[in-house]
Every structure is written in C-alpha cells, then in structure tokens.
Design a binder for these strands. Structure first.
Length: 658
RNA sequence: GCCGGAGUAGCGUAGUGGUAGCGCAACCCCUUGGUAAGGGGUAGGUCGUGAGUUCGAUUCUCACCUCCGGCACCA
C-alpha cells in the first residue's frame, strides 16, 4: 500500500485533477489506468458524484474509489483474480486462462490444465501473487477490434479466451487489460496497479468446474481465494468461517447424537438416533395440531407402488432419473416412491366428492426415496430417503387462491414460532424456452401462475420469480434458506397442480350435477424431517428450545446423600402433565461419580436447556437450583415453581426469555 | 454423475514397507464435591472393503464403498 497522499491524475485532454481535502490521506485509486484510452464521464469520491467531463462518445469511465469504500472490495477481488492468473501462467506455462470473477467474499479463476493443482501448488501460486502485488505493476487498458482480439488469443494458444470473444457481437470492440506484460480480455474496471490489491488475501481451495457451467463441456480447475481490504477484515472472515463450521448440522448431529449414516445402509439414507427422533416427533406433533386446526385429515400409504401408477402420474416421463431402479416382484416392477401425490390422489379418487365437501385436505408425514446425484448429498440437507410433511388439498378452481393463501399463513405460523427470518420466497415457474421438462399445457401454466401471483399479492409476502424451477406438474412457491456452508435449499414448498385432474381423472360433482375438474395444492411447509431438522440444528446451533430439546432438563446431584430425592424429582418431571408433549417431559439424571463442575460441563456440552443442581440444601427445601445453558444461575427454586416454568415452555413452545 | 482430497478405537487425531500411538469418551478404584474438565488404573483397533505387488502391506498399486470441497443436478 502506498503512503497516503493527495492523488493527481492526468486526463486525456491534458488536464490534471487533484482531489479535495476530504480524500487527502486516504488511499485513492482509479478504476482504469493512467493510460486511459478515452475520456472520463464522472468520478465518485467518498460517495459524492463529481462531474468532470462531457462524454466523448465512449463507454470509458473514470471512477475514483478509495480503499475504504465498500466498492473497493470488488475491485480488489477482481484484480486478485487477474494476479492469480498471472501467477499461474508464470509458474505453469501452457495453462490456459478462461474466466475469473469477483464473488462473495473473494474470487476465483478457472484454468485449463491437464495436471491437477495440488495444495503445494496453491502455496507457491499465492507466494508468487504476493510478489506481483509487491512489484506494483501498472495497469493499462487498450481497446481492440473484436477480430484482432480473437486472432491474438488464438495465436498465443488461449483458445478458451478466443471462444469467449467469438460470442461477442462482431462489430464490437473489446477491452484488454494489461498488468505489466500480462494481459487479459476484461471489461474492467481495475485499479491503477497491482499494488493496490494489498496483501489481505488467501488462496483457499481448488475445485473442478465445467467450462461455461455445462456438464457436457470440459472440466476446468477452479482456484478459489478470499480477499479483503485489510488483515482485520480477513481475520474476521476466517473467524466467521470457523463459527459457521461450529454450527454445521453434520458436526452437531454427531456431537448431540441426533443421526448417523452407515455405508452398509447406503449414501444419503440417514439413521435417526433417539435424540434426533425427539425432534422429528415434536415437529410431527406440531404439524398434527396445526393441520387439525386447518381442517386436514390424516392418511397413511405405502412406500412403494407398481410401475403403472408412475406411468399414470407422469413420474416415469418427467422424473425417472430421480427414482431408484424398480424392484422386480413376481415379474412386476415396483418403485420406491419419490413423492406421495399419486397415493393421495388414489385416496381422493376412491370416493365421489360433492362441491359442498371441498376443499378436501389430506395429510401424511410420508417417506420418500429419490435417487439424488451422489455428489449432491450433504448430511441431512440432501438425502435419498426422507420423510415429507406432505398434504394435498383438493379444491375447486374458485377456491384455489384462498387455499393457497391459507397454506401461506400456515407457513407464517411455523416460521414465526421458530423465529426463522433468514429466507426468501421464490415463485418457481417453468422455463418456457425448454418445455420438455414440463407438461406441455401453456395456457394452464399461465392460469396457475396467475392464481399464485394473485395469492401472493393478496397475502403481501415478497417473492422473486425464477424460471426453470417449477415442478413438472405446476408452478410453486419455494421457501429458500441457506445452510451454514452457504448452499441454498428449498426448505418449504407450496405448489399448484393442474395436471392431476387429467391424469387421475379427479373431479367433483358440481351444483349442476356435472363432473368438474379439481385443482390440487401440494404443500410441505415443514419440508422433510431431514432437511428441516438440519436447518433447525444450524438455526439454533444445537441449542434447541425446550419443546424440541432431546433432553429438556438434567438433574445433577451433588452427593449420593440426595440421590433418592433427585430420582423423585426426575420422576415427578417425567410424569408432569404437559398438554403438547408427545410423551411427557424428557429429563435425565447424572448419577456418575464425577464432581458437580464436571457434570455441569457435560450438560453444557450437550446443550441441555436446564441443569437442576441438587444438594443437601435443595433436598431439605424441596427445591432445585436452576442453571440455564446460557450460564445464568437462577438460584434455588421451589419444585412447583420450576414445574410451572418448564411446563409453560413446553406447552407454549416458547422459551421464557433469559 | 464429474474434478480433486480423505477414510487409523464411540469422537478428535499422530504415525510407519517389519501387523499402531495420543487426547476425550467408556469401565474400575480413590475422591461426596456448590455452578464448564479432581487423581489413579483397565479395556478397546483384522488402520473403510476386496484384489494385486512384496519374504512381509495399515503404509505401494488397482477396483469398489463412504465422506469432504467445488461443479453439474436439485419435485
């Protein structure tokens, strides 16, 4: 980093410009080099817009950005990507460059090279990058005709670059950025020299990535790095990563003994342990209560079905790749079901329905199996066997919007209860340019999308639209969350289906005595047990509220003298009537020979909400000494008062503020 | 599925061409202790699975399984 001083820049018409006192002392850099090819339009200094010149028929701009500016981050990262490419080509001649953008928290560059980069290579590359930054090579921008650029990059063996330029319209010029002799096709902007990047960067990892994001293309090697304005920011970022790792549901799932996997069962097929099962059951019990309030009725259906069912449902047309191969039973193909809709549709179809009895809402926490791509499996977030909080609502066309809204409100109740705020809603639509993934009924797609838009508008929830994300049978609203490692998942869904009435012949008798088609809403506000629990583990960092905690209270006797009293307290807690509890309170007792401090530590490690310390004083007073996992000591509390407190928390599903 | 990396006791890890240590957990003994680790001892591993190379493989090679980081996929 250069010494703080006022900055003077020469501009194309010979004038120079110096910056006002406000930026004196700050590091000031320009987005394009002093070899500015064309004139500047405007500059931004400390957030203020400065008009400098009239445009001279060009898109070239001068923007002044100090390193303190948040925008500097993107420049630093983009510059770092260039310097990364320089270093790689310097150390590994013959490696072709492709693209290298700035991304959230860093940058990457994709290279074409036969040999993989090793961890040692990364260290060497990073060292070379530091030298290039130290050398402070000046940046220069040139504008070339497209054809010259293609010829040039082909000549120097950069075939990927040449291909990129070919996709630019023929009459356009392209900008080439030079850092010393090294140069790259680039739109810019860049700092005036490589020294402006600073040294607060790290190369983090290498990964495979397909050329132009298409798995039919060659696979390139992507080197990722992180870059910041100063060491402090870098440290803070690394610290955040470490914190995220501590919340990772895979790690906590192991520590708290919630679930496990076995190679002998298979990839993506989770085994729920007793502690994890508590969370499942409590979620299911919550769903049971909420759905009963909303008029749902429960059903139960098998995990498999014959091929004919999935032919009829169109799963074998649109969804076969995601299904496990069939089992041959007595010469017939049976499939593990990937969804529950067909089974539920058969239940609807088993009886006649009058318009008066609609909507009919049938619900089931139902097990599904999907043959997800092996590389996409991730802990409980993405699995091959899972249990969905599923329900299908069969209604009249004129009821669809209101039913959809009703489901949105159900989502809102769940999200409010669990204080889930970090998510966004996505209206998932078909890709009209690529309809083979979807049922070919353009008018019905439009009508369904309009119902959802109207429902979303009326309920007032913000959302974004996304093409190519719909189900094959209809559009939907997905609730998108991010895992702790930054991967986005749909955690809840609310879908509209116009196909089923045709494929399954589902209808109702209208007030005119004639058969009318039904509309179907598929919904899973709690997603699957697997993904939702994974999310909750990370959301709560394993410190579940009392209603979800596998163990809600642990009794810690200080001496053997009070063991009998401790056992009595435990039994009274277990038998305490709790309206919402699936099976009373979950309380255990630490009768080990360890010291109290040690027992407290063990309970803390398991993130148990309540530690009930019992010694002679408590036994004498028929009380418990209550410690919260936050570390707060609530002191001695009469038994009855503690019973009231924990019962209230379990029933309301809301912890008392600590 | 693809590219790369990795699999050693329940968990976290060290290590080696001559069949393996450490910490935590477990178990036993001593300690009966007042809010995050008292002390001592014992047991526990066919080093992911299978094949190959070798006098000898946990170590080297290959295949498979599983996991991790990305990419692609993701109702």
């Amino acid at each position: 980093m250069s010494a703080p001083s006022p900055v003077t820049i020469s501009l194309p018409d010979g004038k120079t410009m110096s910056f006002p006192p406000g930026v004196t002392g700050a590091e000031v850099t320009a987005s394009i080099g002093p070899g500015l090819a064309k004139a500047a339009l405007a500059a931004e200094v400390n957030g203020q817009q400065w008009d400098l010149f009239r445009p001279i028929g060009t898109d070239a701009r001068l923007r002044i950005i100090t390193r303190k500016d948040p925008e500097a981050l993107e420049l630093i990262r983009h510059d770092a990507a260039h310097v990364l490419a320089m270093a790689v080509q310097d150390l590994f001649p013959g490696t072709q460059v492709t693209i290298g953008p700035a991304i959230e928290s860093g940058f990457y560059y994709d290279f074409a090279r036969d040999q993989p980069f090793t961890q040692d290579d990364l260290a060497r590359i990073e060292a070379r990058m530091r030298e290039i930054v130290e050398a402070d090579l000046p940046t220069r921008r040139e504008v070339w005709p497209r054809d010259r650029a293609i010829a040039h990059f082909e000549e120097i063996g950069e075939h990927y670059k040449a291909e990129l330029i070919r996709s630019i319209p023929a009459d356009q010029e392209v900008s080439i950025y030079f850092h010393g002799d090294w140069h790259d096709l680039c739109r810019g902007p860049h700092f005036v020299s490589t020294g402006k990047i600073g040294q607060a960067f790290r190369l983090t990892n290498v990964a495979g990535a397909y050329w132009r994001g298409d798995s039919n293309n060659a696979q390139l090697q992507r080197i990722y790095g992180t870059a910041w304005r100063d060491e402090k920011e870098l440290e803070a970022h690394l610290h955040r990563l470490a914190e995220a790792e501590r919340r990772d549901h895979r790690r906590i799932g192991k520590e708290l003994e919630l679930f496990t996997f076995s190679p002998d069962v298979g990839a993506g097929l989770p085994l729920w342990m007793p502690n994890g099962m508590v969370i499942r059951q409590e979620l299911e019990f919550l769903a049971l209560q909420e759905e009963r309030r909303d008029g749902y009725r429960r059903v139960a259906t098998p995990h498999i079905a014959k091929e004919a069912l999935y032919r009829r449902s169109r799963h074998l047309t649109y969804y076969k790749e995601d299904m496990y191969a069939p089992l041959d039973i007595d010469g017939e193909n049976y499939y593990l079901r990937p969804m529950n809709c067909p089974h539920h549709h058969l239940i609807y179809g088993a009886t006649r329905h009058s318009y008066r009895e609609l909507p009919l809402r049938i619900a089931e926490y139902a097990q599904d199996y999907r043959y997800e791509a092996s590389g996409g499996l991730s802990g409980l977030m993405r699995v091959r066997g899972f249990c969905q909080n599923d329900a299908h609502i069969y209604c009249r066309y004129d009821q669809a919007k209101d039913e959809f809204i009703r489901v949105m409100r159900l989502h809102a109740r769940y999200y409010d209860l669990m204080e889930i705020k970090e998510y966004h809603m996505r209206l998932s639509l078909p890709d009209t340019a690529n309809l083979e993934k979807y049922v070919d009924e353009p008018a019905k797609w439009l009508a369904a999308a309009e119902i959802i838009r109207a429902a979303m508008k009326e309920s007032g929830y913000p959302y974004v639209e996304a093409k190519g994300e719909a189900a094959f049978y209809g559009p939907k609203v997905d609730f998108m969350i991010k895992s702790v490692i930054g991967t986005e998942y749909a955690i809840s869904t609310n879908q509209l289906d116009f196909l089923t009435t045709q494929t399954f012949g589902l209808n109702y008798i209208g007030d005119d005595g004639k058969e009318q088609p039904v509309y179907v809403i598929h919904r899973a506000p709690l997603g699957s047990h697997e993904r939702f629990t994974a999310f909750l583990i990370e959301h709560y960092a394993g410190a579940f509220p009392v209603w979800l905690a596998p163990v809600q209270a642990r009794i810690i006797p200080i001496t053997d003298r009070v063991a009998d009293y401790a056992l009595t307290v435990r039994q009274r807690l277990i038998e305490l009537p709790v309206v919402n509890g699936t099976a009373g309170l979950r309380v255990d007792i630490d009768l080990s020979a360890e010291r109290m401090q040690r027992k407290i530590r063990d309970a803390q490690t398991m993130k148990i909400p309540y530690m009930l310390v019992i010694g002679d004083k408590e036994a004498e007073a028929q009380s418990v000494a209550v410690r919260l996992r936050s570390g707060r000591d609530l002191g001695q509390m009469p038994l009855e008062r503690f019973f009231e407190r924990i019962r209230h928390e379990a029933e309301s599903r809301r912890d008392v503020a600590e």
